[in-house]
Simulated scan of single mutants.
Amino acid sequence: MAEQRVRVVGSGREEPPTDRSVREIVEALRPQLQELTQKQVELAKLELAPVARKGGLATGLLVAGSVFLHLFLVFFSLTGIYLLNQVAGLPLWASGLIVSGILAIIGAVLAGAGASILRGLDPKPHRTIRTFQQNVEWLKGQFRG
């Protein structure tokens, strides 16, 4: 395989061609690329840390709110049971059965809607995959000639 001459361009002016092969240049750049990657990861961590903290706080508040809403639903259901017992004169077991049935129907409809949405989701990052493949093809083209 014949060695290729490579012209290295730096700071806007061309330098004369060197006898270094592409492989030698890539090997020389490897430590700099690794350091650049490490710095990018550090920057991402620093940038995302406050967002993660706020996200954790928001999640905790959502969980606490969900617990209180669940308790509200339980007491509201009990109120409905006693209301049916007092106003309609139904026995407590019949009132409980009616309220439970209504809750089961609402829960089934909501769960079915959520499951339907989840089935329709496509988790593949198509644009990212396509861009990555284009980059790989471009790199292959650079080494072919």
Rank of each mutant, 00 (worst) to 15 (best):
residue 1 M to L: 12
residue 3 E to Y: 09
residue 4 Q to K: 13
residue 5 R to S: 08
residue 5 R to H: 05
residue 10 G to L: 12
residue 10 G to P: 00
residue 10 G to I: 12
residue 14 E to K: 09
residue 17 P to I: 00
residue 20 R to E: 09
residue 21 S to W: 05
residue 23 R to H: 08
residue 24 E to V: 02
residue 24 E to T: 03
residue 26 V to Y: 02
residue 28 A to N: 04
residue 33 L to M: 13
residue 37 T to V: 12
residue 39 K to Q: 08
residue 41 V to M: 08
residue 43 L to S: 06
residue 46 L to W: 00
residue 46 L to F: 05
residue 47 E to G: 01
residue 48 L to G: 02
residue 50 P to M: 10
residue 53 R to K: 13
residue 56 G to D: 05
residue 56 G to I: 01
residue 59 T to M: 09
residue 62 L to P: 00
residue 70 H to M: 14
residue 70 H to P: 00
residue 73 L to H: 05
residue 74 V to I: 15
residue 76 F to C: 05
residue 77 S to C: 03
residue 79 T to R: 01
residue 81 I to F: 02
residue 83 L to Y: 13
residue 86 Q to M: 10
residue 91 P to G: 01
residue 92 L to S: 01
residue 92 L to T: 01
residue 93 W to V: 13
residue 93 W to H: 08
residue 94 A to W: 02
residue 94 A to V: 14
residue 95 S to V: 02
residue 96 G to C: 03
residue 98 I to P: 04
residue 100 S to F: 11
residue 100 S to M: 08
residue 100 S to V: 07
residue 101 G to R: 10
residue 104 A to G: 06
residue 104 A to V: 15
residue 105 I to R: 04
residue 106 I to V: 15
residue 110 L to Q: 11
residue 112 G to C: 03
residue 112 G to W: 10
residue 113 A to I: 15
residue 113 A to F: 07
residue 114 G to I: 13
residue 115 A to W: 11
residue 118 L to T: 05
residue 119 R to C: 01
residue 120 G to V: 04
residue 120 G to K: 01
residue 122 D to M: 00
residue 123 P to C: 05
residue 123 P to A: 00
residue 125 P to L: 11
residue 126 H to P: 03
residue 127 R to K: 14
residue 128 T to F: 14
residue 132 F to L: 15
residue 138 W to T: 14
residue 140 K to Q: 13
residue 141 G to M: 04
residue 143 F to K: 09
residue 145 G to K: 11
